[in-house]
Design a protein around this nucleic acid. Structure first.
Lengths: 212, 212
DNA sequence: CGGCATCCACAGTGATACTG
DNA sequence: CAGTATCACTGTGGATGCCG
């Protein structure tokens, strides 16, 4: 992208992350931490592969991410945020929260990938409750662990979880953000097994329309 | 801009403010509050006038700003942020802070407009000090009032100020952010009149390289 | 298969000129 | 002053091909 040529912090930031797709790439890396090129490609439906390659090169040159050749078992390059890149996390979350009201509208024709739930869940879930939940939404596993005021939400399985939630991504997300109840969720194909009480403590009472 | 078509808050936010120039327009409105088309055009060097007009139309349609016909004395339309638009302010400030380290580099060929100092000054100045400063940088007036933990920085004159700072924008900015001292600033053409003590209380001791 | 590079039709951009 | 019109140019999205 062309530089704005303005001696202003915002303009400088946009010189780096103002390109189309760039902040969405950062979002993917915040959610997934280190991941492969193909993970990014799948997590960014609509991006052209050459464009993704170009953006990754730019972001590496700007010091936002690193590309490292992974040790033998993986045999591929891994992309991960640098400290400077991770410093974008609160901004990405705030922007996601700002844009969330628009999620209430046209929900039909849009892509919904389960892992996009991770960021809003980190913000919305109640860290005061003690809970360990294994979520499986549209086949993708998300692990939630909360307690002592902190919530950890990450991709991947949680074998030791005391609660299991499984079903289509949208209703699962609505259940976890408190926008529908257990019965409504069940009617939409969501199955909940195990400790329902700690799940209830985790879910916010009346969430605003906030996704990521 | 084409929608990303992703059911994700960040993608939705970028559908609205992810276009080139859009966040810079929001920056101008945060700094200036209500202002005219030509103010925006001057505050955004490099933007094409048709592009500015298009963005303003889009942002109005999205509910980020309003365009109001001003009462008789002005006789022109005024653009101002809505509550939804003002909700972007912390994000714009955070992004500006994130991009600020790059301001240390290539300072030569870039445009520097004095009013861009307003946002970083709001963050960096020490609100504990009691001070009222009238700044004139490159001919543009900025008023600073601080006390009781709060800092107000706005465009325009401050006739009742107890301190007056005047000079070229860059050294004035460096002085106010604590990156150079009074003597160094004087050597760069900055004149300080009046109460120097309250100015010293206002300026942070050792500012990081943070502009807006 | 993962990780790109190439090609092309098209939408968005930037500079200038022009208008109510 | 506040835009609209025009037009050359650049960036994007989509398809496909290549290579270890």
């Amino acid at each position: 992208m062309r530089s704005y040529g303005q001696a202003c912090g915002l303009a400088k930031a946009l010189d780096v992350v103002g390109d189309r797709w760039t902040l969405l790439i950062v979002r993917e890396l915040i959610i997934r931490d280190a991941c492969r090129y193909s993970d990014l490609l799948r997590g960014l439906p609509g991006v052209a592969t050459n464009l993704l390659a170009e953006r990754l090169r730019d972001l590496e040159a700007e010091g936002v991410l690193t590309r490292a050749h992974a040790p033998p078992p993986v045999a591929t390059d891994l992309y991960a945020l640098t400290a400077r890149g991770r410093a974008l996390a609160p901004i990405v979350e705030a922007l996601g929260f700002w844009g969330a009201p628009r999620l209430a509208e046209d929900l039909g024709d849009e892509t919904f990938q389960p892992h996009w739930m991770v960021l809003p869940l980190r913000k919305l879930l109640n860290g005061g409750a003690e809970a360990s939940v294994a979520v499986r939404a549209d086949g993708e596993a998300i692990a939630i662990r909360s307690g002592g005021g902190r919530v950890e939400v990450s991709l991947g399985p949680a074998p030791d979880a005391s609660t299991r939630v499984e079903g289509p991504a949208r209703p699962v997300f609505r259940l976890l953000t408190g926008r529908i109840g257990l019965e409504a969720a069940a009617g939409l194909g969501v199955r909940v097994e195990g400790d329902r009480r700690s799940l209830a403590g985790l879910v916010p009472r009346r969430a605003q329309a906030a996704d990521s």
